[in-house]
Computed example of a mutant assay.
Amino acid sequence: MRRPWIAWPRRRAIDRALTDAGLVTLSLLDAWFQGGFGTRPGAACVAVTSGVLLLRRRAPLPVFVLTVPSVLASSAVAAALIAMYALATRTRSRPLLAVCATVFAGCYMMPWPTPRRGAIVGVSDVPDLAYGLGLAAAPVLLGQLVQARRDLAARLDEITEVREHEQFLAAQSVLAKERAQLAREMHDVVSHQVSLIAVRAGALQVSTGDPDAKEAATTIRRLSVRTLDELRHMVSVLRASGGPPTELTPQPTLAQLHALVAGCGIEAVLNVDLNGDLPAPVQRAIYRTVQEALTNARKHAPGSTTRVEVRHRNGTVRTTVTNTAPTRPTLPLPSAHHGLIGLRQRAELLGGALESGPTSDHGYRLSLDLPVAPG
């Protein structure tokens, strides 16, 4: 049968109270068996000796001193042994423990209050002295063992904490190296190639006379320059590993949605119907969803037209991006196919849902539903 659950501080207090009561009872029984209650002074001495055991945790040495008279006046030794154990668990002075053990053995051997004729200590007292030293050694050794166990447990906890900290530092070091390597790759490879795209687009913008080609070159150059700015900021963030937290590029809002649709490089129409401001996480989710949908339409449905709708109805914001079937051949472009997965995870974190799939006219539709608490 399992013990009922009790709060740890309360349970600890109950255990201490039961231990104290048990030790005081043991001391009183020992004195009773040894005849310590035969006289009023003896009874008073037993009461004091047993009562001071309640203070053994706070003042172990004074408690031991107060229990010595009971050993000297009778054969009741339980209180003194308990006090000596408490002292041994709390002090690191071995000479002090040796002195206390010697005092206990001397009082145990001393024939008081009945005086002895002749020598105070004789050869016949040696066995009593040895027995008294043996009795004193038991609680001293046991108390030192308990103290060593506590020290070992504390040392193990410290070693565990240090080892966990070292593992954390090692992981941070590996992460810093990986981030530095990624920053170098982004700076040396990606930024270089995007720079070439921006330069070639700028040259095409100046040299061509075709209005459509000039507009396309202008869009490519503008997007390339914006991508370069974001790449430079990302490189600085990656290189700042181990330092204070660095803010990423200012997060987009719905105020930038019109600029995103206008500069997406394809024919797109935006229709926004919202009631009031939306929380920043919701705005970012809508922006990134529209951005990913327009990118997919540009890559996989060239020549199509896209319609973007953002509507707020009954506490839910629905964002729908629908593109028609492509009218030109699709160019093979690299893709990790992680865009929709990331959008779906972002929607789930906000308590919403993301659905996507082909339409009946061979187009594609992406729909995002996000709950919005009433303001």
Rank of each mutant, 00 (worst) to 15 (best):
E185T: 06
R288V: 15
L53S: 02
R56G: 05
E164M: 12
P326G: 00
V146I: 08
T227H: 12
D151M: 15
A138D: 02
G36T: 01
P127A: 01
A80M: 03
K214F: 14
G36D: 01
E161K: 03
A148S: 07
A255S: 12
P211L: 13
Y364W: 15
A78E: 02
E164F: 11
D15F: 07
G22F: 08
A17G: 07
H165D: 10
T208I: 10
Q205K: 05
G351P: 14
A80C: 04
P127S: 01
L333K: 02
V123H: 08
A7G: 06
G352H: 04
G342M: 07
G38Q: 12
V77S: 02
L257C: 05
L340F: 14
E267I: 07
S236I: 11
I82R: 00
R307P: 06
S191E: 15
Q251I: 08
R284E: 09
L182C: 08
V77F: 01
L228R: 13
T253E: 10
H258T: 13
V310C: 08
Q144V: 03
L270R: 05
G122P: 08
Q291R: 09
A293V: 09
A154R: 13
L135N: 00
L354D: 03
A44K: 02
P211N: 05
T160C: 05
A347I: 06
R56V: 07
Q205A: 09
D273P: 09
R40Y: 12
L29M: 13
A280D: 10
W8M: 09
A73H: 05
V282R: 04
L96F: 05
